[in-house]
């Protein structure tokens, strides 16, 4: 089975949801022309990233009667979509969210569970913390979505792996930082290292879609990338430029790799659970 996956590495207008929606529809059309079956967008692709006090004013509910989601749901009849947005729940809590849309329906919404609130980041000040990590079924197999800081922690990808995800859709608005003599920013090197590791450790497909452009002095570095279950790079978009990266993934590779390397089969989840319970019940948690 084949998945033609499109990563949309785009800039956004900060707080201008209507303009960003137009850009989504444009890229969806471009991806459709190239035969894509799934199109994924970066973190907060509909709103921009450093929202601060804009957060409540750009929030949307992913429903058919929402003016922003209606055209996206319509487009999802032809190809599946993952978009980044601010979700507002019925009690008016605001989340950094990704929605997976297919066949005119919302298949799954993920709320970012790790909100970086340190250094240049201040997400915990403006957003509510997501509280669940679930894989979900799609026509391309079982998928998991995580947003930026979610996969700076090892546990969310691990949980999604155990929950059956064979394809991780990782989205970011990652600012480049740590300029030194190296070929890339320190932050770029770090993210590429961990995303590749997840593909290798879990024998799964990993797609990371990162935005580009600037918000005030922050540069978003792009470099969106796909790794296969061997940890090999399938394709990568350029750094710091808008790009539509369309690649064919041979999903049968999952079977061939796991026949050779049965890491999933041999994973001792009961042992993990036992030891985790012991650690959490002891005084030594996080030492």
């Amino acid at each position: 089975m084949e998945l033609k996956l499109a990563l949309v590495q785009m800039t956004t207008q900060l707080g201008n949801v209507a303009a960003n929606l137009e850009k989504h529809l444009y890229f969806i059309e471009q991806a459709r022309k190239q035969g894509a079956g799934l199109v994924v967008f970066p973190e907060l692709s509909l709103t921009g990233y450093v929202l601060q006090d804009l957060a409540p004013t750009v929030a949307h509910r992913p429903t058919e009667d929402d003016p922003i989601f209606r055209p996206l749901l319509e487009a999802s009849h032809e190809l599946d979509l993952m978009v980044g947005f601010v979700d507002e729940d019925l009690r008016h809590r605001f989340y950094i969210a990704s929605a997976y849309l297919s066949g005119g329906r919302v298949i799954h919404v993920h709320h970012k569970v790790y909100l970086p609130t340190y250094g240049l980041f201040d997400e915990g000040r403006f957003f509510a913390w997501g509280d669940s990590i679930r894989a979900f079924d799609t026509r391309f197999g079982r998928v998991g979505m995580l947003i930026c800081e979610d996969f700076w922690h090892a546990s969310p990808p691990y949980l999604l792996w155990l929950d059956g995800a064979d394809l991780l859709l990782l989205s970011s608005a990652s600012p480049g930082r740590g300029l030194n003599h190296g070929e890339k920013f320190e932050s770029t090197r770090w993210v590429e290292q961990v995303t590749r590791s997840y593909a290798s450790l879990f024998t799964i497909f990993v797609a990371h879609v990162n935005r580009v452009g600037y918000e005030d002095g922050l540069n978003f570095w792009g470099g969106s990338v796909i790794f296969d279950p061997r940890g090999e790079m399938v394709a990568q978009a350029p750094y710091h430029e808008e790009a539509l990266l369309v690649s064919s993934l041979d999903l049968n590779l999952l079977k061939r790799v796991r026949a050779r390397l049965p890491l999933l089969r041999d994973e001792r989840t009961a042992l993990v659970q036992r030891e985790l319970m012991r650690i959490l019940q002891s005084e030594r948690t996080l030492g």
Binding site: H181, F185, Y214
Partner: peptide
């Protein structure tokens, strides 16, 4: 020491964007 090619690319794009 900095990577001058990377600095040049990021800083010129910054000027253009902003």
């Amino acid at each position: 020491t900095i990577n001058c090619d990377l600095a040049r690319r990021v800083l010129t794009s910054f000027i253009r964007s902003e």
